[in-house]
Design a binder for these strands. Sequence first.
RNA 1: GGACGGGUACCGAAGCGGCCAAACGGGAUGGACUGUAAAUCCAUUGUCUUUCGACUUCGGAGGUUCGAAUCCUCCCCCGUCCA
Length: 445
Amino acid sequence: MHLSYLPIITKIRVSEQGNIFDEFQWRGLLFDATAELKEVLATQRVTAYIGFDPTASSLHVGSLLPIMGLARLQRFGHTPIALVGGGTGLIGDPSGKTAERQLLNREQVEINLNGIRSQLAQFLDFDRAGNPAQIVNNLDWLGELHLIDFLRDVGKYFTVNYMLSKESVKRRIQSDDGISYTEFTYMMLQAYDFLALYRLNGCSLQMGGSDQWGNILAGTDLIRKADAAKAHGLVFPLVTNSAGTKFGKTESGTVWLDPERTSPYRFYQFWMNTDDRDVIDYLKYFTWLTREEIAEFEKSVAEDPGSRAAQKELARLVTAMVHGEDAFEKALVASKVLFGGSLGNLSVSDLKDIFEDVPSTSLSRDVFEGAGLGVLNLCTETGITASNGEARRLIRQGGLFINSDQIEDENAVIMPSNLIENQLLILRKGKKNYHLVQVNSEASS
RNA sequence: GGACGGGUACCGAAGCGGCCAAACGGGAUGGACUGUAAAUCCAUUGUCUUUCGACUUCGGAGGUUCGAAUCCUCCCCCGUCCA
């Protein structure tokens, strides 16, 4: 997808010194780990994997933490494997879910898989001498697994008692919706993945989000029982924010890594809006900044929070890492213009450029001819509000701006003469939500 | 298959013949204050029109009634226990 941007990621620091375990620890990435892991990581080069389920065609910012985990591991000389769950994705992981999930069909999983695979590829180095990264698909082994073999070779190592004691299962059993046999089995499949990778690649460490702890231990247990070998697990904390809402969600939904789904501008804005209380943690989690550099920002947040230096740096680094330096520059310029004051003396081409990533709608010029287009219609037409009633409310409360003029009359009409150079309208809802309307001479929306 | 409990707006959850477009909480949106932050406060939160009003909603389909989210019948779905 953005393979051309790879250099940005790698040029920052090519190789790291020291122990990845300590690195994880100071960054606050170590939520839990199996007992001997610290020792093992200090003395051996290991192969480790993280699984990514193809529940959507793109990863989102929440996945960034584990992805960076793999990348960090690689820089410390260990071998990362990103596993995409072509097989497990067909089943559905009950971990962290309070209700049974809708099964995805095979075509969708396939589509999702391809999207995710290319995103993962951005972050890993497949040519690194000594410890090149790999991406594998568990459908390769799960797809061929026969039920009888599975029950004999894998199922025999799991007591139902053991499975019932797992948090993910326990919670669902206590809930009103229960858990299907299908999802109940998920844990065994993931455990089998670990075993398969252990056998195929000598992979002895699985990492993941803290909700994966139970599944990961199921894997290390299976490896111990089936192959009498020692495997390890490490889980990252759940990324939280101090406002108590779910990390990675904004008013406009999930923040995806796919620029088609979440524009670089919005992506940049997401990080820019990080709470003061979270920003230092996020710098540790999501950037390659060193301990010393982060300490500087910590000081800055304490002494001069208004400048938001830490947020700016976080947004800059993460946006550039995911979308590339150019996309970051554009997002920055757009943000400066939008939050900097007047749009006054910018040309249409400037505006179009700035607004490239801002949500936009195309309307035909015809709708403005004659009596003009009512602002209420304009709002619903562009999707800035869901209904005329909502548009009315917005105007009444003084939250609608067109071309930086506040609209006070809900019956106001937009005439062709209101268009900027005959082709643009800039809508703003509240303080932060911009929407561009491009007016075409012929094509209707 | 049997017994019981349950399915209400974005979510949770009241309502159990009219005073119900449906309490309350959360979330969300707008505003004030700020730093594009947090906290706090105010407003809004079915659709259309906004002044009255009209229309569509309480798992689905019918029915009783002047009138139903509330009563009846059948059906679908979920849970718990029993087989």
